[in-house]
Design a protein around this nucleic acid. Structure first.
Lengths: 154, 154
DNA sequence: CCGATTTAGTTGACGCATCAACCACGCGCG
DNA sequence: CGCGCGTGGTTGATGCGTCAACTAAATCGG
C-alpha cells in the first residue's frame, strides 16, 4: 500500500505551476531584453561577466566550471563569441592541451555597456516585486531546493 | 539625487543568484530527464499534455495561447512533431486560414508513458524539498512576481 | 462589391544546448 | 622508452527559440 500516486496533489501542482509560469516569463523577458538592449546574447553576457570579473583572462575549463557549463557548450559558445570579436582563444603556456579565453577590448566594452541595463531590468522585473524580507524568504527556499537537488541522483 | 544605482544591493543580489542557480539546475535536470525517460522532448511534453487534456484536438492558435507561446515557435514545434508522428495538422472547417492540431494515437501513447515519470521527477526534485507550507509560500511569492511583471512594460 | 487592414499561420536564418564521437597532450608505470 | 589512460578541448548532428519577412484568408468601411 501507500505507493506514491503518479500525479501531484492539487496544492502541490498549484505551487509547481506558479513557479514554472513565473520563471518562464521572467527568464524569457530578461534574455530578450539583453538582446534588444545590447549586442550580447544572454549567454554572451554570462561569459563576459565571469571573465571580466576575473581579470579578462581565464582557463577554459575554469570558466566552464564557474558557470556550471559542460565543456562542449562552452566550446561552442567561445567559438561563436570569438567569431564576433568578443573574446579570443590563446594557447596555454603551462599545458599544451589547454586554452585560455581572453576578453577583447570590444568584449569588455560590450559588457560594460550591457551590465547596467540588465541590472536595471532585473530590478524592475524581479527585485521590485517583493520586499527585502520576501526576497530573503524566496532566496532561502531556492537554496533549500538547490541543496535538496544536490543530494538527489541524476 | 537618489538615482537608482546601476547594481543591486548585496542582499538583493544574493536573492537573485540563489533563484537563478536553483532554477537553472532544476529546469535543466527535468528536461534532460524527460528526454532520457521517454521519446519526448520537454517541448513535446508540454504540447501533448495540453492537447490531450483538451480532447486530442485543438485550434493551433488556441494551443499557442494556452502555452503562452509565439505562433512561430508553435509552428516550428508542430512541424517537428508531425514529422515524428506525434501530432498531425488538419484543415479547419470554420476558417480557411486556420489549422487544427491533433494528437495521433502514437502521441497519446507517448505522453501517457512519459507523464508519470515526469511527475515523479518533479516530486523528487522539487516538491519533496519543501513542506506544503513552504510550497505555498513559494507559490505565493512566484505569483506576486508574475503579477508584478504583468504590470510592467516589455 | 472592392480595396484596405487585420488575423492565421509558415518559413528561413541564425544562435543556443545536448549528445556522442573524436583528437591531442600529459602522465604514470613497467 | 613506450604504452595506456585520464584530462582538456573540439566537432557535427540535431532539436529548440527568436526575429523578421512572407502568404493567404477573413473582415471591415465605403
Amino acid at each position: 500500500m501507500n505507493a506514491t500516486p503518479p500525479w501531484l496533489a492539487p496544492e502541490q501542482k498549484a505551487a509547481w505551476d506558479a513557479f514554472i509560469r513565473m520563471q518562464e516569463k521572467l527568464i524569457g523577458r530578461l534574455s530578450r531584453q539583453i538582446q534588444a538592449d545590447s549586442r550580447l546574447s544572454a549567454a554572451d553576457y554570462l561569459v563576459l561577466a565571469k571573465l571580466t570579473e576575473a581579470g579578462d583572462r581565464m582557463r577554459f575549463t575554469e570558466l566552464a566550471r564557474l558557470l556550471e557549463w559542460e565543456k562542449s557548450r562552452m566550446s561552442h559558445q567561445v567559438t561563436r563569441m570569438a567569431k564576433r570579436g568578443l573574446v579570443a582563444r590563446e594557447e596555454c603556456p603551462d599545458d599544451g592541451r589547454g586554452s585560455l579565453v581572453v576578453a577583447t577590448p570590444d568584449g569588455r566594452r560590450a559588457i560594460e555597456e550591457a551590465a547596467p541595463l540588465h541590472v536595471e531590468n532585473v530590478r524592475r522585473l524581479f527585485v521590485d516585486a517583493l520586499t527585502q524580507e520576501e526576497l530573503d524568504t524566496f532566496a532561502d527556499l531556492s537554496r533549500r531546493v538547490l541543496a535538496h537537488m544536490e543530494r538527489q541522483p541524476g
